[in-house]
Each structure stands twice: as structure tokens, then as C-alpha cells.
């Protein structure tokens, strides 16, 4: 699932740390960042950048455990969108 456009990135990453399983940011090219890692989080917020230029638009959030999608749902676009 993709991140909502106006999602609070810091709050999302803080909650991702508390998720039961790993939470990944996967680019459209197939590269991955494990968002439980501090360094990954820094790279992620750097990529968030300005709204129009955000590299996060070209990737999606992948949760190792399905229940974490619900845990993080306020930040994620619904599956239908």
C-alpha cells in the first residue's frame, strides 16, 4: 500500500517501530528499506522531501505481518485506491 499524500511521516515511522513485524518501503524498482532501522528512517525522511518531488510516491509500504497494515492504516491509502 502507498503512503497517504499528507501522512505525518515522523508519526508513521515512530509507529512503524512499534509494529509487530518488519515494515518495508519498497520502491517501484524493487529496492527495499527496512523502516525499523534508524538509518533507513533517516534515508526515508530525506526522500520524503517536498510534496511535489517526493520519491516516496514511487514506492509502497510492505508489512511483514498482515495485522500491521491495520496498525498503520491511518497513514496508508486504502487497498482500493
Amino acid at each position: 500500500m502507498r503512503l497517504k499524500e499528507k501522512a505525518n511521516i515522523v508519526a508513521f515511522l515512530q509507529d512503524a517501530r512499534a509494529a509487530r513485524g518488519d515494515v518495508w518501503f519498497q520502491t517501484d524498482e524493487g529496492d527495499q528499506l527496512n523502516l525499523k532501522s534508524v538509518l533507513s528512517q533517516y534515508v526515508f525522511i530525506s526522500a520524503a522531501g517536498n510534496e511535489g518531488e517526493s520519491a516516496l510516491k514511487n514506492g509502497k509500504i510492505v508489512c511483514e505481518k498482515k495485522q500491521d497494515y491495520q496498525f498503520l492504516q491511518e497513514y496508508l491509502e486504502s487497498a482500493e485506491s
Binding site: T27, E29, Q32, L33, S37, L39, V43, F44, S46, G49
Partner: peptide, 22 residues
């Protein structure tokens, strides 16, 4: 140091570049 860690961890280069510029 951080660049080397990022490369060892195989972070996506397009994302790392922006980070290193910061």
C-alpha cells in the same frame, strides 16, 4: 562512514543520494 554503511546495506542509491546531500 554513513555512505559506506548505506552501500553495505544495499540501500536504494536514488534515496541515498538525497540523504547524503543533506
Amino acid at each position: 562512514y554513513i555512505r559506506n554503511i548505506c552501500y553495505e546495506a544495499k540501500f536504494p542509491s536514488s534515496l541515498v543520494t538525497s540523504f547524503l546531500v543533506h
